[in-house]
């Protein structure tokens, strides 16, 4: 399937899942907020340029914002992780980007440990920034810290569940002739 089409479908699915499934689930506790929609940004192909990553991040965040009535809140957090994604990918993956064997970040492409670090770093960044912005409005510093830790943990759990339940079939790309 075409990469663009695939990602558009994925975008609709992630926003739909977040808005109509995860946000409708009765809260177990006020600290436990399942957030997974930003996995869309984490799964974008390596080939997307840094500028387009920012634009896509902004659009993703903003469309979710309009469902949540918080224009700008999630958009800001998504732009932040879209900005930092290339740096983290560069640290975690061997330098020469032309030799990536897979088209997008996944446990298979990066190995479980680097992928885990990648997911952890970006989730923490996303939730930290998101909740910080929320906290500026309604302040309680202890709440903020506990919430960041709890939501990050929940998100990582969800992301790895998604990773195991829906293994993405990806072609192994190589430039050597068979």
């Amino acid at each position: 399937m075409n990469d663009v089409l695939k990602n558009i479908i994925r975008f609709i699915l992630f926003i739909g899942l977040q808005v109509y499934v995860l946000d409708k689930v009765p809260a177990l506790h006020r600290f436990i907020i399942p957030i997974i929609y930003f996995l869309f940004i984490l799964w974008l192909p390596f080939s997307v340029s840094r500028f387009w990553l920012l634009i896509i991040g902004f659009i993703t965040g903003l469309s979710y914002d309009y469902f949540k009535n918080t224009p700008g809140l999630h958009a800001a957090a998504c732009v932040l992780i879209a900005y930092f994604r290339p740096f983290i990918v560069n640290i975690l993956i061997p330098k020469d980007t032309s030799e990536f064997n897979y088209s997008e970040p996944s446990a298979k492409a990066m190995g479980w440990a680097p992928y885990g670090v990648y997911v952890f770093a970006l989730s923490l960044l996303h939730h930290g920034y998101l909740l910080l912005l929320e906290w500026l409005d309604v302040g309680n510093i202890l709440d903020l810290l506990v919430k960041v830790v709890a939501t990050t943990a929940i998100s990582i759990l969800l992301i790895f569940t998604a990773e195991i339940l829906f293994p993405r079939r990806m072609k192994y790309r190589t430039n050597t002739a068979y």
Partner: peptide, 30 residues
Amino acid sequence: YFTFISFVLLQVLALSMLFRYNKYQRAVFL
């Protein structure tokens, strides 16, 4: 610094939307 500048611009846009919204209790472009 094109990427960095666009990052800062988008952040400013998002944050201004956020804070203007909170102030008046209603959304810009809603």
